[in-house]
Amino acid sequence: MTETAPVITVSNLIKQFGRFAALRGVSADFAGGKLYAILGDNGAGKTTLLRTLAGLNQPSSGQITILGTSNFHDICQQVGYMAHPSLLYDEMSGMENLAYFAQLYGIAEGSRCADIIRAVGLDPELSRPVGQYSQGMRQRMSLARALLHDPKILLLDEPFSNVDIHSAGDMVRLLGGTRDQGKTIFVVTHQAALLEGTADEFVWMEAGKIIGRTRSFKPPEPVA
C-alpha cells in the first residue's frame, strides 16, 4: 500500500493558555484520504489540537502546514470545522442557517443546502428553529454546516455526543463515505468503539501529547 503525501504536517506544536500548557509539543504527519479518530481523557488537548488546526487558536510555538501552506486564509475554503457547541443560530431553521453560511463561503447554487441536509438524514423543509431540535438532530445539522462547502479536510469535535446509537451509526457511515471520496477526516470522540472498522487510524493523546497511533482500537503500549 503506497502512502499518500501528508496533507497536514504538525511539528512541535505548543499551545499555552497563560500558565497552562494544553499542547506540549505535538508532532505528526497525517496522510490524505483517511479517517483519524483522536482519543484521550478530558484535558488531553484533543479539542485544542482541533481548534489550532482550524485556525481558531494561534500556536504559542511550532508549525502547522495544511495542504502545503501555513496561512489559514488560503485554505479555509478547504477546511470544515464542527465544534462541541452547535455553531448554529437557535432562532433560525436549519435551512436558513445553512443559507447564511453558504453566503459566507460564496456558494451560489441554491440546491446545495437542501442536498447536504438530506445527506445528513434531515428534512430541508423542516421549519422548526434549530433551538427546538433534539440534540441528535442538532448534531446532524451542525455536521451539515461543516460539510456545506465540500471541504477536503474535516475537523469534527465530538460529533456523536448525545446521539442515539442508531443515528450515530448513520453518521459513521456518512463519514466513511465522505472519506472514500478522498477527504481527510479527524474525529475527536469519547465513543471510539463506534468508529471501529471505519477509522483508518486511532491517535491517542495524553496530557497535551500524542502518545501513540494504532491501526485498531487498542491503546498503545505504555512507554517505559
Binding site: I14, Q16, F20, A21, R24, G25, E206, A207
Partner: peptide, 17 residues
C-alpha cells in the same frame, strides 16, 4: 516568572495519570 511557570507545565507530564 509566568514564562517559567509555563515552561514547567510543559515539562512535567502528569505522572499521576
Amino acid at each position: 516568572v509566568d514564562e517559567v511557570h509555563a515552561l514547567e507545565s510543559l515539562k512535567d507530564v502528569s505522572r499521576s495519570a
